[in-house]
Simulated scan of single mutants.
Amino acid sequence: MKFKESKSIYLQIADRIMDEILHDTYKEEERIPSVREYAAMVEVNANTMMRTYDHLQGMEIIYNKRGIGYFVGEGAKDKILSFRKETFLNEELPEMFRTMKILDISGPEISALYKQFLKDNK
């Protein structure tokens, strides 16, 4: 996995796991790879991976069955979508609006581009 400098590695891995849950790679109540297995897949230290799993467990996306492994929690998809929507609306969208203002990009320009995007990605 190629990591970006701007975000902690464990959070980037958490994003990847959440993407995999959203894409049904891992379904609700299904076991996910162990800490060591996933660490080997993304080529990171097991401690980093443990931090990722702790983070996802704190978000109630995954849970641990002692001695068996980690599983995707019930309602994980809805929690991920809610979390990402909140993040987008409260962090990313205001940043986009600031950039639009600086570059003098109008709402109608963005609207037209968004409509074209929807048309192209049916």
Rank of each mutant, 00 (worst) to 15 (best):
N121W: 04
I80M: 10
D78S: 11
G58M: 06
I61K: 05
M50Y: 07
G67L: 09
V72W: 02
F97H: 13
N121Y: 10
R31I: 08
I102M: 07
K65E: 15
D78V: 07
G75Q: 12
E30R: 01
Y53C: 05
E92P: 04
V44C: 00
L103A: 09
T52L: 01
F71D: 13
N47M: 07
K115E: 15
Y63E: 13
I61M: 04
T99D: 13
F117M: 11
S106K: 11
I102P: 00
G69D: 14
A46C: 03
L89D: 10
R36A: 05
S34I: 02
Y114S: 08
G107T: 12
N45Q: 06
K79G: 06
S34L: 03
Y114D: 05
E92G: 06
N47Q: 07
E86K: 12
E91C: 08
M41R: 08
D120I: 09
Y114P: 02
V44E: 01
F88G: 11
M50F: 03
M100F: 08
E86Y: 02
E60T: 08
M50L: 11
R66I: 15
V35C: 03
D78E: 15
S82N: 13
A46I: 00
N90L: 07
F88K: 09
I102W: 00
P94W: 12
G75L: 10
T99E: 14
T99W: 07
Y53D: 02
G107D: 10
T48Y: 02
D78F: 07
L93T: 07
E43A: 07
E28Y: 01
A76D: 09
M49P: 01
E86P: 00
M96R: 08
I80Q: 09
D104I: 01
